[in-house]
Simulated scan of single mutants.
Amino acid sequence: MTATVHRLNPHGTPSLDPLMALVAQDLNLVNSVILDRMQSQIPLIPELAGHLIAGGGKRLRPMLTLASAKLLGYEGTRHHKLAASVEFIHTATLLHDDVVDGSDLRRGRRTANIIWGNPASVLVGDFLFSRSFELMVEDGSLKVLKILSEASAIIAEGEVNQLTAARRIDIGEERYLEIIGAKTAALFAAACRIAAVVAERDQSEEMALDAYGRNLGIAFQLVDDAIDYVSDAGTMGKDAGDDFREGKMTLPVILAYARGNDDARAFWKEAVAGRRISDDDFMHAVALVRDSRAVDDTLARARHYGQRAIDAIGGFADGAAKRAMIEAVEFAVARAY
Rank of each mutant, 00 (worst) to 15 (best):
85 S>N: 08
87 E>H: 06
91 T>P: 01
91 T>H: 01
92 A>H: 08
96 H>A: 08
97 D>M: 04
99 V>Y: 02
101 D>C: 04
102 G>T: 00
103 S>R: 03
105 L>E: 06
107 R>K: 09
112 A>V: 11
113 N>M: 07
113 N>E: 02
117 G>M: 00
118 N>F: 02
121 S>C: 05
122 V>I: 15
125 G>A: 01
129 F>V: 12
130 S>P: 01
131 R>V: 15
132 S>N: 07
135 L>K: 06
137 V>D: 10
137 V>L: 12
138 E>R: 00
139 D>W: 06
142 L>W: 14
142 L>A: 14
147 I>N: 08
150 E>P: 04
150 E>L: 10
152 S>C: 11
152 S>Y: 00
153 A>L: 12
156 A>Y: 05
161 N>M: 08
161 N>S: 15
163 L>R: 08
165 A>T: 02
168 R>P: 13
168 R>G: 13
170 D>E: 11
173 E>N: 01
175 R>D: 14
175 R>V: 15
179 I>G: 06
182 A>K: 15
183 K>W: 06
184 T>D: 13
185 A>H: 08
186 A>D: 00
186 A>P: 10
191 A>P: 00
192 C>Q: 11
192 C>M: 15
201 R>W: 09
207 M>R: 15
207 M>P: 09
208 A>K: 13
208 A>V: 00
